[in-house]
Write a protein that binds this DNA or RNA. Sequence first.
DNA 1: TCAAATTTAATCATAATTAATCAAAAGTGA
DNA 2: TCACTTTTGATTAATTATGATTAAATTTGA
Lengths: 250, 250
Amino acid sequence: MTFQKRAHKILELLETYGEVDIRQLANYIGVSEVTVRRDLNSMAAKGLLYRTHGGAMKISDVIKPVSFATKAEVNLKPKDAICKRAAADIIDGDVIFIDCGSTAFRLCQFIKNKNIKVITNSLPVVNELQHSAVTINLIGGEVDVTRQAVHGTMALEHISRYHASKAFLGVDGITAEGLYAGSEHEANNTLAMAAQTSCTYMLCDASKIGKTSYLKFNDLSIVDIIVTNYNGPEVNKFESNGISVYSVTV
Amino acid sequence: MTFQKRAHKILELLETYGEVDIRQLANYIGVSEVTVRRDLNSMAAKGLLYRTHGGAMKISDVIKPVSFATKAEVNLKPKDAICKRAAADIIDGDVIFIDCGSTAFRLCQFIKNKNIKVITNSLPVVNELQHSAVTINLIGGEVDVTRQAVHGTMALEHISRYHASKAFLGVDGITAEGLYAGSEHEANNTLAMAAQTSCTYMLCDASKIGKTSYLKFNDLSIVDIIVTNYNGPEVNKFESNGISVYSVTV
DNA sequence: TCAAATTTAATCATAATTAATCAAAAGTGA
DNA sequence: TCACTTTTGATTAATTATGATTAAATTTGA
């Protein structure tokens, strides 16, 4: 019985029952539980199924989080420290872009009392800033429910009509070679905002630095300032690219 | 019983009842209350539900802006009857405008399963339709917090880029002489949407018929259909203006 | 406001699952 | 055949999930 044959059987069972457990599989296929475990792990790595404690589930049955508006996120401290530092640069009269990432969202709590105008495509940001001193300009276009954001051609056009003094953006990954995004939509928004801004801030917790993602969408030239809790060797490379790096401690 | 399976059951119950309590869940699922508590906490962290003292609630029941929800509760039954009738005219493939009034908001509940595209400047409408079959296009511009809507030049321009088969609009008052709005912003939005629509529906409960407000912004020529629970003498005047009147009973 | 009742968070113990290590078996290619 | 890799299974230590217990926090009602 080869791995491929077993994988096939596992997917069959998964299709029928929605979920399977290790003992059941070991019995049915006639191999040891250790082997089943190895199979499941490698299949999960390929995205063929969702590994659970004691078994596996069909991918489509897995419940995905919907919005981070109410999400009590883990690892908030680095993000909050980064945003607090970034917010210190925002002065009354500023017009700023805030993008739809979860890091930039944390900026909201620090700017509620500032007399500024915020342009954003993020629905949680709008909710958060609604009853604050801030004036909100919401970017229009197609609503992406999973990202809780507005995207598309109309959104890009909307952005191009405005100009901001500062933009506070997030990325999926950043290296000396450039910027990486999780989707083309996000990349386009980031680029559009950066193009209309005098000074672009990248808010990156340490996990983003040195990380690449599936789409490299630009070099570092659009970035003016990186705010991060990372202080390893990449920092020098950023600085030699003409970027200021604000280091924060958590 | 894995965590994932329990999560499914919890969400199922939540969908049915809107809220659940810990004891009930522990009993139903067959695990200890401690475990249920842990499950609820981790699910809340993922934004899958709203954790309450002693249980949990459906997210969508929570994130609705309170100010609007209460406003919408005035005269609910006529509004619902009107919207139900209006929704009957909406067919798969339609592109519709929904404006930011409290009446038009009640339309959402009747269109969740339709395969349509909704263009709106109303934040509550976006929230309400988020997890439905509907595709949402959000109009961009200045956010008006009190009205929970998007307004301004950019909004009007956004609207002018699209065309809809039907528009579902509300007004502050309507007489044989014309349409009355509570603010210039609302008037502009209404006009802009009507201008880009093949068939314009006015959703007016009886309190709006024959009422004037501080701004008369247009005659009745932009109106194609009035849906109302009013059946007094004004109806004939509307009909002699070439408008169809759908009468509903509460 | 206070006090009683309820719910929660924290700690610990136990049971189940997993990852890691190593050895045996089966396949590979010269 | 022999050396080599790959796959599999057994064993054990580490991790994770769960439940019981109790102190702390929250809600409720007077």
